[in-house]
């Protein structure tokens, strides 16, 4: 190695050896010392606490399930719930908590449905929503009933028990209610209150 008379050249000659070695060392740390996961790091990176995982496993529960589909006549249905579990003794049936559904109909109208519990029967393609079931339609009607069924195959929401509703014409009580296509005119969708309807309209003078 040639010797130099001044410090600067000596420094440069030394640097030519030391710097590449340092670079090599730095590069090697990239592979040899891998980041260790979890043990030293914080534990809350996992979305589920351990107890909930066991719960989910034991009950075969789904967390926040949702369903989206389109009926034969073109209504988009999306359904979600806080949790759902399959019915052990009846295959194809599931129970869900805090069920919500939204229907967007081809005529541009829409309906939101919610209920405390819901059960979905994929074999006869119907969702049954129970417990303070509420429907609010884009035409300004909010309907309350105990139980209602919403089909997946075609647009058909039906409450066979008594319903109470509030809407543009006023307060409505009826024996039952359906939201479905008008049989005589496929493009039209009708919200029909049946089995005896009573409306109270308050004319504000």
């Amino acid at each position: 190695m040639r010797s130099y008379d001044n410090a600067y050249s000596r420094f440069i000659a030394a640097a030519k050896i030391v710097f590449p070695l340092a670079a090599l060392g730095l590069l090697s740390t990239l592979f040899m010392i891998s980041r260790d996961h979890g043990s030293a790091g914080n534990g809350d990176g996992l979305p589920y606490a351990k107890v909930e995982i066991d719960d989910l496993l034991r009950q075969q529960r789904l967390g926040a399930p949702n369903y989206a589909g389109v009926t034969r006549d073109g209504t988009a249905i999306s359904m979600r719930a806080d949790s759902a579990r399959s019915d052990p003794d009846r295959p194809g049936r599931g129970e869900a908590q805090a069920m919500q559904a939204r229907l967007t109909l081809p005529d541009g109208s829409s309906a939101e449905i919610q209920a405390n519990t819901g059960s979905i029967d994929t074999s006869d393609r119907v969702a049954v929503l129970e417990g303070d079931a509420k429907i609010s339609t884009s035409t300004g009607y909010t309907i309350e009933t105990d139980r209602l069924r919403s089909a997946f195959a075609d647009t058909n929401v039906e409450a066979d028990g008594p319903v109470t509703a509030n809407g543009p014409p006023g307060r409505i009580e009826a024996g039952s209610m359906t939201l479905s296509a008008d049989p005589s005119d496929k493009g039209r969708y009708l919200l029909v209150f049946k089995d005896g309807v009573r409306l109270i309209y308050e004319p504000e003078q």
Partner: peptide, 19 residues
């Protein structure tokens, strides 16, 4: 004329397109 108006019928149907 300011009394509430009550309408009773067998059915009430509401067109979801135009209300």
């Amino acid at each position: 004329a300011s009394l509430p108006v009550e309408v009773t019928a067998e059915s009430l149907s509401v067109d979801q397109g135009d209300g």
